[in-house]
């Protein structure tokens, strides 16, 4: 009995230990990237490229996610609220849930799906075709040239994306509440503004920055350490996305409970 129990739990147990080990390795990787970015040469053009490909091209995905989620959220809160005769809480709860939780988390997951996978695949391909080795023989540090711009871009862009997502999410709730549930538009916006606090926005931005850093880090880390040809690139891509998802959800829990709890 005990034996089978141990067997049953040893696999997930090993997975959790492996997870912590790779968090450690990824931290060293991140420190090396940040350290490398402190000394010249600097690559502003690389950073701008990443800002555009990460930020601008993620806007539609993040915007639609926020719009749909905001609307669905308003509907659910209406259903739930009506059980306590508290339908009037719809605008306040929608904006708080959206800003503090859903926009950063769902935005982070959507961007991770797009960006962590793309980074892992691109760097992984560069690894298996020896382009990363070639960089080193051409007087260039891959951490300066490839990794640092991606990490900085992720950290800068995500808060901006989430800011937009917050606004669009509230808009989604507004559209549903006003055109389907019969709320008064002016009142809705007034209540939204009255209940939204600075603390909510700070929480939203901090989460977004952390998630942006993590999703870029996971993509880069797995891509950089790819081995084994095309199949290896496939594995790196999967691992990049899955670990980015896990990291975002774990970081979200930690930030929510410990920092803004």
């Amino acid at each position: 009995m005990m034996e089978t129990l141990i067997q049953v739990f040893s696999r997930p147990g090993a997975a959790i230990i492996a997870l912590f080990a790779s968090i450690g390795r990824a931290s060293i990787f991140a420190a090396r990237a940040i350290w490398s970015a402190m000394r010249p040469p600097y690559y502003p053009i690389r950073l701008i490229e990443q800002l555009i490909s990460l930020g601008y091209f993620s806007l539609p995905v993040v915007g639609l996610t926020a719009l749909f989620t905001g609307a669905a959220l308003a509907q659910q809160i209406y259903v739930g609220g009506s059980r306590f005769n508290a339908e009037s809480t719809v605008p306040a709860v929608t904006v708080i849930a959206m800003v503090r939780e859903l926009a950063p988390v769902l935005g982070g997951l959507m961007v991770a799906g797009r960006v962590s996978s793309a980074m892992a695949a691109e760097l992984g391909t560069m690894r298996v075709t020896e382009q990363i080795d070639a960089l080193k023989t051409l007087r260039t540090d891959p951490f300066q040239f490839l990794i640092a711009p991606r990490l900085f871009a992720g950290t800068i862009v995500m808060p901006l994306l989430v800011l937009v997502a917050n606004a669009i999410g509230v808009l989604g709730g507004y559209i549903l509440a006003v055109y389907r549930l019969g709320f008064n538009g002016a009142n809705y916006l007034e209540t939204t503004r009255a209940y939204l606090e600075w603390d909510d926005i700070v929480s939203s931005m901090v989460k977004a920055g952390v998630f942006g850093f993590l999703l870029a880090l996971m993509g880069c880390y797995h891509g950089y350490h790819t081995e084994g040809g095309a199949a290896g690139v496939g594995r790196a891509t999967t691992n990049g996305v899955v670990s980015a998802f896990l990291m975002i959800l774990l970081a979200n829990l930690i930030i929510t409970v410990l920092v803004f709890g």
Partner: peptide, 28 residues
């Protein structure tokens, strides 16, 4: 040192002339 890799290892995101002068500009 300079190195020619067996598989070439050219940077596929850059055109040929930027590849060739990469070490001179260190990628800038």
């Amino acid at each position: 040192c300079g190195m020619l890799f067996q598989g070439g290892a050219l940077f596929d995101s850059m055109n040929v002339w930027r590849n060739i002068t990469f070490a001179l500009t260190r990628g800038r």
